[in-house]
Design a protein around this nucleic acid. Structure first.
Lengths: 334, 334
DNA sequence: GAGAAAAATGACTTCGGATGCAAAAATTCT
DNA sequence: AGAATTTTTGCATCCGAAGTCATTTTTCTC
């Protein structure tokens, strides 16, 4: 495994007849270089196809210009959009994204070591971290921003969509319309987002003295929702007239199952609502009534907060909470 | 911007009462370290929360253990799955993914400089590159593997799904069933994949002396397909009895439009087929008849080829072409 | 227990670019 | 033109871990 033959600043310097420092300065904005030297260097660099070695630079400047993005479940339909946006915005700011896609949140711990080793300037985590794990970043003064995960303590910054608010709005609208019997298709038990949505939903129901609801275990997935729906239809004593789903993909699974397995009309017979506002939610087959998360604004906020904190590590932690946008589709009578 | 206070191998060495070399050796498998020293070092490292600096290591070893993945369009529904798999497999092999998500392929050129600067050990490109761009990687002996893009010359390795074969199978099945009048919803003009599928489709039709087909411009997207379908239904002299779509998302757009805008039954009145085998294709609403790309096998192959070439840069270029899998759904009479 | 072989260790150098500093060159001012 | 500035420039050093090599320690053999 012999070293690759790439050119270094010394090669450029030799060819241009200047010192290595001069070459280095040509790649640093605001450095003092005469036009003559700059021309010589640029010409030589071009001739050799020279590109500065970002690793060497990072080693000395202690800035890698890269950010780790830790995402739990890229097949979730919601996250790819988030990732694309983050990547886009960071790229515009001259930062690179080092992707850590974990299958299950249990893999997170193994990944964190890697994250630290790569000397990333910051971390965006769309997974849960323990306080201990958070502390590791704190100790290093590496800014950490959660995406759609709160942390009880104020140990880290976060960008979130207001899950509770969105769920409340949705539920209240269903109640106001006159729905009486509810079912809730839940997310995975260990999902913070799922728990918040569920809690807000149930609270809202109970505030209106509605106790006629059942909860069925989905897991944010189409298949999970399908199973939950079958169970619901087979086991529940009476059919609900509204089904509130933990996310859009679940809602889609529910709708499909109702329509194609039980020949039930949505929204005529049963209303179904989701949460997220993913692409397929707008497809004519579903035309979901849902809460859309303002992904662009959220990711942009995350990137901004990150850059601020990289420049000024002492900045206090901050949480930015965005309200979801109610989308009136045609999957619920509202 | 003062330097972050992280511990280095010297700190560990001092605390453990050994030399820096000893610390370094403890982190290299197969190095010669006595148990006593190793224990001392491990204890000290743990106490300080020491993590080796991957940048410094990469600088001296000329191996960054990271791979650039350049992807054009993460909102495409097909790519997130690819990215998740790549990330997963690379991670298992101890490699990191540096993500370069470009919006349009015109952004690629700007990104390539970055890719090189980061000293990635290899590049997976799901975008088109010019021969000149390819040559840059060749010059550096950085392995380059295309994903679902051919390059005419043998200048680079590639992992592809056999677009032509898949399209041929699908088309032939439709012909064999007895469909006579066809429409094709195309992909973007500059998409290699789209062109190959289209060409194979048309060739197959013509081989069976079918000239009764029309082509409508989609762009791999739901909305594009919707527009194309409306045009088709409004402008075509007679309705097709089969619509072949450049990808699954288009097919879904077509089905929805036919059903909800024109009240046409699929597959009873018109057959619709797609290509890719994305998640939503299996949803009950669509139950698409399609060709599924074996994404797991393809990404695994890409990762394997990459690791081989990183170890042995002199390896000849190689193309691995996988056949798609015919999925008989219920969106086409076949 | 002496001698030979093997294993472990640390001093020193290296990777490639950035930067402080002093010297040199260019510019401005008397 | 000469002095006083200001701008450029190059030398030397640094970042943090890895590898080379000579030296020391341990293990093994007879």
């Amino acid at each position: 495994m012999e070293r690759k033959k790439t050119f270094t600043s010394y090669d450029v310097a030799r060819l241009a007849g200047v010192s290595q420092s001069a070459v280095s300065r040509c790649y640093k904005s605001g450095a003092s270089v005469s036009k003559k030297t700059r021309d010589k260097v640029e010409k030589a660099a071009k001739k050799l196809g020279y590109q500065p070695n970002a690793l060497a630079r990072s080693l000395i400047t202690a800035r890698s210009n890269s950010v780790a993005v830790i995402i739990s479940n890229l097949t979730n339909l919601y996250y790819p959009e988030v990732l694309a946006q983050l990547s886009q915005y960071f790229s515009e700011k001259g930062m690179r994204v080092l992707l850590f896609a974990v299958d299950t949140e249990s893999q997170v711990d193994g990944v964190l070591g890697q994250v630290l080793q790569y000397q990333v300037d910051g971390v965006i985590a769309a997974v849960k971290l323990t306080l201990e794990q958070i502390k590791k970043f704190e100790d290093r003064e590496t800014p950490l921003i959660f995406y759609n995960r709160h942390i009880n303590s104020h140990a880290a910054s976060a960008v979130c969509c207001d899950q509770a608010d969105g769920a409340t709005v949705l539920t209240q609208k269903l109640i106001d319309f006159g729905h009486k019997k509810f079912a809730y298709i839940s997310g995975p038990e260990d999902s913070m987002v799922g728990i918040e949505r569920q809690k807000a939903t149930l609270t809202t129901l109970e505030k209106s003295d509605i106790s006629d609801y059942t909860i069925w275990n989905g897991d944010f997935s189409y298949d999970g929702a399908t199973n939950a729906t079958c169970k619901l239809m087979n086991e529940a004593k009476q059919k609900p007239d509204a089904i509130i789903c933990a996310n859009d993909v679940s809602a889609i699974g529910v709708i499909d199952t109702l329509r194609y397995e039980y020949n039930i009309k949505v929204p005529e017979d049963i209303s179904v609502v989701g949460f997220d506002g993913v692409g397929p939610a707008t497809w004519a087959s579903f035309n979901l009534t849902t809460i859309r998360q303002p992904v662009k604004r959220m990711t942009k906020a995350a990137v901004e907060m990150m850059l601020e904190r990289i420049d000024t590590p002492s900045l206090a932690n901050e949480k930015r909470v965005f309200s979801g946008i109610f989308i009136e589709g045609n999957s619920a009578k509202i």
